[in-house]
Design a protein around this nucleic acid. Structure first.
Lengths: 337, 337
DNA sequence: CATTCGGTTTGAATCGTTTCAACCAGACCG
DNA sequence: CGGTCTGGTTGAAACGATTCAAACCGAATG
């Protein structure tokens, strides 16, 4: 009756003061054996759960951290979220996952929500190149860590993967496979990650005589890949390989190739990026550039903890190494130039 | 300086009382034109954001709802989350998405977190058959809506899909395709959804002379499907078709079939469940039973809003109809028995 | 001129915790 | 025996908003 039981009710039931109840909950070691048991019994009996808002109001610190990702439909980010959640839980924190869907407006909305909640901190994969999201967080003194994005000029921690090197790995692999005309599905996308992967590929091909053909995409999902794949097949001369800015695009391209009766990798070699589970699970398992997604999520939480942990804090940029995972989609015998 | 600006600072800056500032924020229509402008200016100038915890403490109601899903790695639940988020945002609410990964222990942890937060309500896809999650929510008076699960005996709202009918659709389709020996990848899984799909299939085959072969799975993901697929191929006589409890399993089976050199659907027809994006995007697009995932998320939020909206509330069970989407993985010419 | 009235604004009480200085009782010390 | 510790416990003051009864004020009414 009368709503949920409060700390006062527990105190009365246990015949003790509210301060003691609070101690039982937060610093059990300081309260006497017998008292603790009596209070605990009262808590259980009344089904008391403390009010997080009251706790937070008084103590000033929140127990949840916000995670704002670019696209929850991309399993890569789901893995990042999983890593973050796990690490957070190890510290007794909760994670609020939100999806900006690459829309700066949605990003702003969610950041405002986080600010109102006074979250402990935010893990952010910025939706725009300008870093306006970071700016608003900075303005409100919300600690944050950039995820999957190096902080250029922005003074903050970040975890990222060397996308230039990743692009380079992919292109070098295709080059070694004898390919001389390679498409890049991703075109001149505004996302920094995509641009970096492209420039890495470009660098790897430098001076090899092979050329990189830009293939524009409307988005970074399977449908966009299917569309780009269809266009790719119509090119003359047709590239013998395609490097896709992420696995979703690659799966779309693969599907378009199958629909057109092409063999993969004989007629078209495909390299994806992210190494999501569905890449290995595709009918022709995809060669892909793996990023340590869970580790990124975990590390981001750790950096945040470090930053909010008090004491002097020096922002750090953690950069992971990408890794090429070779599978059937590029495994044809090397063709002679 | 000295931390974030509070409502008092704004009041002082605007030369007005705290009550008025609160009114400007929550009931702008009651405050005078000129005053409102002055206060608003102060708010902007100080970069004031209200403290959600203080608001919630006093007003009693939270602005976030918890969503606890079975598996964020399954795009089906990601779609549910997307639908829920969208609907919630339309009502000015936020969604906290968490992943129980089918572990009752994790489910309990997250529900405890939700309870502490005093969330507006919870959308729950129960991890165990006993409904212990629902019980704990009930005990703490947290309103909740069951998602993807009919509430049997549990007194609550729910949104679900008729899984029996879905299973039936799938099996009937395979039957019409001439198949007489059909495997069910999902076996006797503890999840109610899986059991229902199986019994629907069983019912459809009743009296047709066709038989359903149970194929146990270790989980409900791609890896489990790959494993089950490998076992399937060794069966004698080998079933000519397989109905999978979800698309992740189906993708795994498809991959196993390809690895063994089988043609789909000529040698093995495959039907999945959920119709996730990757089903259509598979090299051999998968026939699948579609569930209106986004609509489910949206409806769940609406039911919750109805329940918490005050006034008399009668629990409702919304049941959606599944829909068979036929694609290449079953499109062979009907074989004669 | 005294009242009433609607529209604004005020100020204090309140929400459920945490925190901290003060208090207490018994043990120990000199 | 007085004084200092020590381990437990207390009670009241925050925390930052919302809410609401009361005060205010100028205009309109009787």
């Amino acid at each position: 009756m009368g709503g949920a039981a409060g700390i006062k009710d527990v105190a009365r039931a246990a015949g003790v003061s509210v301060g003691t109840v609070s101690n039982v909950i937060n610093r059990p070691e300081v309260v006497g054996e017998e008292t603790r048991a009596r209070v605990q019994a009262a808590i259980d009996r009344l089904g008391y759960v403390r009010s997080e808002s009251a706790r937070q109001l008084r103590s000033g610190s929140s127990r949840i951290i916000g995670l704002l990702v670019l696209d929850l439909g991309n399993p890569f980010f789901v893995s990042v979220a999983r890593g973050a959640e796990r690490a957070a839980r190890a510290q007794g924190l909760g994670v609020m996952v939100c999806n900006s869907a690459q829309r700066p407006a949605d990003e702003a909305d969610y950041l405002a929500l986080f600010a109102e909640q006074r979250v402990r901190g935010v893990l952010l994969t910025p939706a725009d190149a300008e870093g306006s999201g970071a700016a608003v967080l900075r303005r409100h003194d919300v600690p944050f860590v950039l995820v999957d994005r190096l902080a250029p000029g922005i003074e903050a921690c970040s975890v990222s993967v060397d996308d230039v090197q990743g692009g380079s790995l992919a292109a070098a692999h295709l080059l070694a496979g004898g390919h001389r005309r390679i498409a890049f599905a991703g075109g001149r996308h505004r996302l920094q990650q995509v641009a970096d992967r492209r420039s890495g590929a470009l660098a790897a091909l430098e001076g090899s005589g092979a050329e990189l053909v830009d293939l524009e995409v409307a988005g970074l999902d399977v449908a966009a890949g299917r569309d780009a794949g269809a266009r790719l097949l119509g090119m003359l001369p047709r590239p013998t390989a395609v490097f896709c800015a992420n696995d979703l695009l690659a799966l779309g391209v693969l599907q378009a190739a199958f629909a057109a009766g092409l063999r993969v990798p004989e007629d078209l070699a495909i390299v994806g990026y992210d190494d999501i589970e569905f890449a290995a699970a595709a009918a022709v398992p995809l060669t892909s550039v793996r990023q340590p997604a869970e580790a990124m999520g975990r590390t981001a939480v750790e950096l945040l903890a470090e930053e909010t942990g008090g004491g002097a804090h020096r922002h750090r940029q953690v950069v992971f190494e990408p890794e090429l995972v070779v599978r059937s989609s590029t495994l044809s015998a090397p063709r002679t130039a």
